[in-house]
Every structure is written in structure tokens, then in C-alpha cells.
Design a protein around this nucleic acid. Structure first.
Lengths: 208, 208
DNA sequence: CGAACTGTAACAATCGTTTGATACAAGCAT
DNA sequence: ATGCTTGTATCAAACGATTGTTACAGTTCG
């Protein structure tokens, strides 16, 4: 298990994002642009990524991208939306066959980490780039993120949690953790599954 | 060292960073520049902050800053070093009178959160801006950060921790949390102390 | 006076974006 | 088949704005 996918996709080493783009009826080039932009935004941040950088990644000139995108900002919002949707779908699929509240939470955490630590296409880290994005756009991003986080809200609501813990803070802390593991994670040392298990073990505080 | 506790200062709403700069023999302008740059880097990130932005904040033209700084990158490294040193000093001072391992960890977490959530001068969030900083500089930053994190390494080594938890991951997760609370924190709803207590409560897993 | 400071003005580079031309394939009329 | 049109995809080049940075002249002040 070199890359340890196991997601059910039998069509190669594609990332979840790639798969979602294929189904959206977009051309190869179009999805390549979205994918390259997602990776670059994740690596260097929005402000530090130029349109020409994205173009170079897909073998196009910077200006040529404007046949596919309306603006750099719109491109960012688009990627953000797709990435969150893909993540939500995968997490919902991962927890649906499980019934034990803690097992469901662990499955959600592991899936979330798999998405964020996927070396093929780091889609999610841009979730934290809110600081450097303009205010008007931030609203759209926050709205979509809130929808996404509802999954965890429900998951945590079902936990038999020690009443001394505030479920609101609990959720914020857990998501902060999951969203920022990519800051120190290096492939090979530890799998997303192992990290996810440790996270849930730490966050597990039953009644009494 | 940059010894200078911020909490006992009775000379106004200054941040810990400001206090440290005053003692460093720097002129008012010079420290104002460092402070403004720190705030802007924290707010919008390194790439999204221009030298002219910093100048405007202190009432100077962009070019005039170069009487005080060598380059934008050097300015960033400088701030990063000072901020980490200030944080380390304050945390060491906060834990020194305590002996109980969990109490020491809680004091360290609360102090860390106080520093990062200080609305007067958000100094630390730039600790996570590694992604958008050039590779050569990143080495200096990482080295200084490792030194800083040694405090937590020692703190965690003293914990009577459940052996099923890996202390390395434990430390990474805890620091990830502390470093990124600024992403969702809004003043007024909850104090750094309350958040710190919740964090330690979650991370508290004694032997047996 | 001289040193420390600040503004003026410009530099080359890069930014996001637009424009006009070009290549190429597909469709339709003749 | 040929020619004409239409649309898609790309490049080359440039736009004005902004970037980090510098040289230099001017001001302020001990």
C-alpha cells in the first residue's frame, strides 16, 4: 500500500478533486486548470500565486486562462466550493454505514485528513486562507464552510460527551486541528488513519 | 534575553511586543514600524502586505522605511524572531512558579493564547505563514520555532500521560491548536483563559 | 555644521487583465 | 470536393497598476 487509496476509484491515481471534475462535464484542460490552481493556492496561498504560475503548470500562458475563468478571485471561490462539496460527500459516505457515535467521528476525522493530506492534489488547505482574501468574497467562503461544518456539528451533537466540555468550542478546536495538520505533516512517517485515531483518542471524553 | 512581562505594565494598552521593543533601545519610529508590520503580516499574510501598506500605518512613505529595514524579507524574519522570543519568555515566566505538570501545561497554553489573541498587536499568527515564504528564509524560521517549541516538549515530557498516546503527535496537535485559534477567535465571546482551560481539559489523559 | 531622518521620484519586475491575431476543427452551402 | 463561415483554443503583446527597492535631494534637529 504505497499510496493507500482504497476509495473505490479504479481509474488511476487521481485525486478526489479530479474525479469530481470529470463528472462535471468540464474539458480536460478546464479541470486541469482548476486542479493546478487548487494545488498552488494550497502550497503558496492565494496572494503568492500568480495567474501566470497557474498557466505554466498546465502549459498555457497566463492570459490564456481567461478563456476558462472570469477572474482569479472567481477561480478561487470556485475551487473552494468544489473542494468543500467533495469533502462533504466523502465524509457523509464514510460515516453513513456506522452507528456508534465515536466510530462515526473517527471515520469523519480520518476521511478529512485523507483529503487534506492527499499528496496528489492538496485541495483543502485553502480553507484557512481567509485572511488574505478580500472581504466581499470571504462571505461566500464562510457561508459554504458553515454548511460543510454542519456535518461535524451533527456528529458532535450525538456524542455522549462529558458535560463539562462546551460542544461549540469542542467543534471549533477539532476542526482547527483537522484543518491545519497539513502544516506539519510529511508523507511516510505516519498515515492519515493513524493521526486521525490519535486525534479522536485525545478528543474522546465520555460521560462520567 | 528579552525579559519583559507584559501583564504588569501600567503604562497603557501596550502589547507584549511593544514592551519588548522599548527595552531594545530602538527608537519610537523603529518599533512602530516593527509593530505595524507584525500586525499587517498577521492580518493579511506576508505576500498580501506591501511595504507601502506598512509605511502608511506609521505615517511614512514606503521607501522611507528602508532607513530602518534592510528588506521586506529581513523585516519579516526579524519580527518572527522577536515575537517568538517574547512568547517564550512570557511562557517560561508563567510556568516557573508552578510544579504540577498539568497546571504548568495549562498555564503555558493560556499564556500562548493570550499572546496570539491579543487584539492590540497580533504578533504570532505569522508563525503559520511558512507556506508563502521563500525556502531559504524558511530555514531560519523553522530553526527558531523549534527552539521555541522545546518549552512544550519539556512540558509534555513531564506529563503523566496515558502511554497509548504518542507524545510527538500530542505536541504537534496541541501546538497546531494553539497556533490557529486566531483563525476563529472573536473578542468578547470567550476569554483566552477559558479557551485554554477547555484545551487542556480535552488534552488531559492521565495514566490509568 | 553634520548626522539622522523623510519625501520625491524613479527603477525594473511582476501583477491581473484585455486585446487582436492566429491556428484549427466542424458545419453548411455551393 | 471546394469554399465560406462559425466557434473554440491559444499565443503574443500590451495595458495600467502595484510590487520591492534605490538614488538623491531636502528637511529637521542636536
Amino acid at each position: 500500500m504505497t499510496q493507500g487509496d482504497g476509495r473505490g476509484n479504479a481509474d488511476g491515481p487521481q485525486s478526489a478533486l479530479t474525479g469530481a471534475l470529470r463528472e462535471s462535464g468540464l474539458s480536460e484542460r478546464h479541470s486541469a486548470i482548476l486542479e493546478a490552481a487548487a494545488a498552488l493556492f494550497a502550497e503558496r496561498g492565494y496572494a503568492a500565486t500568480s495567474v501566470r504560475d497557474i498557466g505554466e503548470r498546465v502549459g498555457l500562458l497566463g492570459g490564456s486562462l481567461y478563456h476558462y475563468i472570469k477572474s482569479k478571485e472567481a477561480l478561487f471561490v470556485r475551487i473552494h466550493h468544489i473542494a468543500l462539496q467533495v469533502a462533504e460527500d466523502r465524509i457523509r459516505a464514510a460515516i453513513s454505514p456506522l452507528s456508534d457515535p465515536w466510530a462515526r467521528l473517527e471515520a469523519a476525522c480520518i476521511t478529512m485528513l485523507e483529503i487534506q493530506l492527499d499528496p496528489n492534489s492538496l485541495t483543502m488547505p485553502l480553507m484557512n486562507d481567509f485572511a488574505s482574501t478580500p472581504a466581499e468574497i470571504r462571505e461566500q467562503l464562510v457561508e459554504k464552510r458553515d454548511t460543510f461544518e454542519q456535518v461535524f456539528r451533527d456528529l458532535i451533537a450525538d456524542l455522549p460527551l462529558n458535560p463539562s466540555l462546551d460542544r461549540g468550542v469542542y467543534r471549533l478546536l477539532l476542526l482547527t486541528l483537522l484543518n491545519n495538520v497539513s502544516g506539519w505533516y510529511r508523507p511516510g512517517r505516519m498515515t492519515p488513519t493513524e493521526i486521525g485515531r490519535q486525534v479522536v483518542q485525545i478528543f474522546r471524553h465520555d460521560l462520567v
